[in-house]
């Protein structure tokens, strides 16, 4: 059922955009990759198709990493970015965009290219990840990791504001545009790299299902059931970092989905079993992202809205509605 919905939305998503393309052209260009004749086919194959696949990976990945963090920290307010990953990425990108004046000339132009920004975001994420993991191995208390992650976030945000204060309007705008997030602009090569990282993160999440379920009883009980707490915690943090980090690097800091989709899924499926939650959350995340991206295209117009705003605009009312209707939160 759900996977069918994903498929339908996938096709709908591809058929929407600033250029109108007939439906049969879309189908033929989806199934026949040898035909690269027309501009329309080119748009489908090199722009809309990678964008739709990115939407699926981003939605599924954010949902899963949100679930991992909520269960690990036993906190319904946790999301994929509580460890400070997106803040790390922001710092990387801010340093690059706002600090690029220091390099000057051709070097600055190369650095500011798409790959430069992706690399800066990835390096930023990775730096924060290393800090979090080294801290996680020292601290016994999981809650301490949560607070430390939030502190990293505040620290990097402060750095970014200081830099923003001293930078030009043009640099600021460029940074703000990055922070809106974007699902497009990924070439097939980049998408392939993204997919590989995503799949490793997904695999680690699947391997964590059993530990996640026992963590629902709390850490002491989980340990008494034979769980190696430190090792499981480490795997869960790595999985989250791979998923959320690669998403931030390739699509920018996309808010809300990671927090909301796990809640949405728990309400709808009325279960806390991660064997069911993990695939369901992945599908719902993909659905939400495809839907939001289709809305962001503003069907039949030339404009595109920033995806980061649309996810919250669409998602927040849904979550509020569900909570009010059920009167109670599942966790």
């Amino acid at each position: 059922m759900l996977s069918l919905l994903v498929l339908v939305l996938f096709v709908v998503n591809i058929s929407l955009g600033s250029v109108h393309i007939a439906f049969d052209t879309i189908l033929s260009s989806l199934f026949d990759f040898n035909d690269e004749g027309s501009t329309q086919t080119y748009i489908i194959q090199h722009y809309r198709l990678p964008k739709a696949i990115t939407a699926i990976l981003v939605g599924a990945g954010l949902g899963i990493s949100g679930m991992l963090m909520q269960t690990l920290f036993r906190n319904p307010l946790a999301g994929p970015f509580v460890l400070g990953l997106s803040s790390g990425a922001s710092l990387g990108v801010a340093l690059l965009i706002m600090g690029s004046g220091l390099f000057g000339g051709i070097l600055a132009t190369t650095l500011l290219s798409y790959w430069g920004i992706t690399a800066a975001a990835a390096i930023g994420c990775f730096a924060v990840l290393l800090l979090v993991v080294s801290v996680a191995n020292k601290v016994r208390d999981t809650m301490a990791i949560l607070i430390i992650g939030l502190m990293f976030g505040s620290l990097t945000a402060a750095f970014v504001s200081v830099m923003a204060y001293f930078s030009s309007a043009e640099q600021l705008q460029k940074y703000v545009f990055w922070s809106y997030g974007s699902l497009g602009d990924l070439s097939w090569n980049e998408l392939a790299l993204f997919t590989v990282v995503f799949l490793i993160g997904l695999l680690l999440s699947i391997l964590s299902i059993k530990s996640l379920n026992s963590l629902l009883l709390g850490e002491n009980y989980a340990q008494s059931l034979g769980l190696k707490i430190k090792r499981s915690r480490f795997i869960i943090i790595i999985a989250t970092s791979l998923l959320a980090g690669s998403i931030t690097a390739f699509a920018g800091p996309i808010a809300f989905v990671g927090l909301a989709v796990p809640h949405l899924t728990r309400q709808i499926f009325n279960t806390t079993d991660h064997k069911i939650l993990l695939p369901a959350i992945a599908l719902y995340g993909a659905i939400l992202m495809l839907l939001c991206d289709s809305i962001a295209q503003i069907p039949f117009s030339q404009y595109t809205l920033p995806i980061n705003a649309v996810t919250s605009l669409v998602g927040a009312p849904v979550v509020i509605w569900l909570l009010v209707k059920k009167r109670k939160m599942m966790f």
Partner: peptide
């Protein structure tokens, strides 16, 4: 074990 602490998820 049966501990005095509450379990993390009340929805089990």
């Amino acid at each position: 074990l049966v501990l005095t602490e509450q379990i993390a998820s009340k929805n089990l």
